[in-house]
Nucleic acid binder design. Structure first.
Lengths: 342, 342
DNA sequence: GTGAAAGCGCTAACAT
DNA sequence: ATGTTAGCGCTTTCAC
């Protein structure tokens, strides 16, 4: 443990503590000569300012908190990376806490962040009751809440536009000439991300005067779910030329089903996933998929947070994180079109 | 921002600050009645102790630092999760910092941790010069250094035994009856993990009187490297019944090569990877692979650290993290043996 | 341009 | 069993 304090530096340099403080923080008037003297004393003694002590008086800790479900989840770890990079650029260190989407743990994590007096919090929380969250926000500094809506002056919002991902995917298919498009998705109206993706699909279809009977199959959002649903869908609708999937795991299951059925992807059938998980680029054919830039989520969140820390009264617009379509090898023009071009 | 201090609580409860402190920390004598009074005042005011202020006097911050190459790397994010879970059990919050394996950034991260006065650091560092690391350790508290050896009283060690992973894999193959075993690995003597895995393989072979000519092929540690190397290896040695790979990516490339060659895995050929990356369980056949429990690395690291924080003079033995063989579907008894059993 | 005094919120040590 | 005093390391305010 190092015991070098500002006092030691002051003595070494033959000045007062305040002068050392000025040299460190580039604040107030100080002669270049004195400053150099102080800096060399700091160097000599290996002094590192004690941020805890500083924060006692400035009421700022230069720390922020990130609360996620599970940092081992690649989604969150990418968000964390983006957040940390930008936080560091702004001079903040970051505390990370995992909740496993448990309400009590979420609450506990918030309290721990408060005890550490972090300057702001980026929060992924689905479980904590809105009133508890609001009660916490009453007593605390800015919070950036992601993918959830709880109105409070200290809570600012960021969200992924799930519908946009589906729209991008749909438009790509439409543009290529697909007219018989199906979708594989779980049926859970309570889950916002699921219902939004599904609603976006139905809305795209209806806008183009396409019927949505028989071309949506519900299943678990897993590899097996996608596999089973795909068999079922192709059985009901032989004419389908493209299938959208709620997530990549289902899409990869669907790919497997096509392989076993001998339906070539993308030549006979185009498949699009959602999320861009790691495996998506490794399956054959590599999966085209709609995705958010997760690093970008972290970046945007911390930039909003820093603004709010520096200006607590600011009211930021709900920020929508853009999505994009990662184009790989599971999508092509429908076979009919290809044939007519020959 | 909440302004409730211990003073406010004391006034509300009609006691002194010290009594409040005692109630919070369960230290010293305090009558149950007073304690209850204080606790209810805390509740009423929504008081949260200021850890920064506490740490000023206790010289403990209840924080630890984790410095890794990249938290978005699933390896590190699993380590981080294990570390955070156990840290929380011990009452520590954790700062995480990424270095991208850059020496300057590693140094910077250490300095930031020092400025935050973390009580201890778990460090993954390959690049920072040993002398700079030692100079830092001179001035600081306990450091647990993973997979690297820098002798210093404040630095304690933990390492993955790469050789053990290969030994486990080799023994499994041997036990099944394999006698013609090859290996795919990069050739980079400077990288400790590579040379240890290779050395372990050669040592296992020699111990059993097996020649190691022609059955090791060097290649990049990638999917393509594994693919190419496998073609080369099978061309040179038609009799091979099993192949060990430096990592899973090479192994998955090797799997692909076998598929194209029409050599069935595991019936004609057994393949074992190393690391247990996510995809390993998703390829066909699912890959048998040697792996460290990454969560366990985090757990062990923080437990060592906590011991050291509580007893700075302790000198801990270098801790070896156990490996295990994750058995899936890419390994079977050699074809010859299966045939003779029919 | 520099220094002295005050105080951030808390606990250790001593007093009562 | 409870209160008082002092001080952790720093910056802010106000003198000089």
């Amino acid at each position: 443990m190092k015991g070098v304090t500002i006092e030691d530096v002051a003595r070494e340099a033959g000045v007062s503590r305040q002068t050392v403080s000025r040299a460190i923080n580039n604040k107030g008037e100080i002669s270049p000569k004195t400053k150099a003297k102080v800096l060399s004393a700091i160097q000599k003694l290996g002094y590192t300012p004690n941020l805890q002590a500083r924060s006692m008086v400035t009421q700022r800790t230069s720390t922020i908190g990130l609360i996620v479900g599970d940092i081992a989840n690649p989604y969150f770890s990418s968000v964390a990376r983006g957040l940390q990079d930008i936080a560091r650029q702004h001079g903040y260190s970051v505390f990370i806490s995992n909740t496993d989407d448990n309400a009590d743990v979420e609450h506990q994590a918030l309290k721990t962040m408060a005890a550490q007096r972090v300057d702001g919090i980026v929060l992924f929380s689905h479980e904590l009751a809105a009133e508890k969250l609001m009660a916490f926000a009453d007593t605390y500094r800015p919070i950036v809440l992601v993918n959830r809506n709880v109105q409070h002056p200290n809570i600012h919002h960021m969200a992924v536009d799930h519908g946009e991902g589906i729209r991008l995917a749909f438009e790509r298919l439409w543009h290529l000439g697909h007219r018989n498009i199906g979708m594989l998705a779980p049926y859970q109206p309570a889950r916002a991300d699921i219902s939004r993706r599904l609603a976006a699909f139905e809305s795209e279809m209806q806008q183009r005067g396409l019927a949505t009977t028989d071309n949506v199959v519900a299943a678990q959002p897993t590899f097996d779910g996608g596999y089973d649903a795909m068999l079922q869908l192709l059985d009901a609708r032989h004419d389908l030329s493209a299938v959208l999937c709620y997530n990549d795991r289902m899409a990869i299951g669907a790919l497997q089903a096509c392989r076993e059925l001998g339906r070539s992807v993308p030549n006979e059938l185009s498949i699009i996933g959602f999320d861009n998980i790691r495996v998506s680029s490794m399956v054959t054919p590599a999966l085209t998929t709609a995705a958010v830039d997760r690093y970008e989520i972290g970046r945007l969140a911390v930039e909003a947070l820093v603004k709010l820390i520096n200006n607590p009264d600011l009211q930021l617009e709900r920020r929508i994180v853009p999505m994009s379509l990662v184009e790989r090898d599971s999508v092509a023009a429908p076979a009919a079109i290809l044939a007519s071009n020959m």
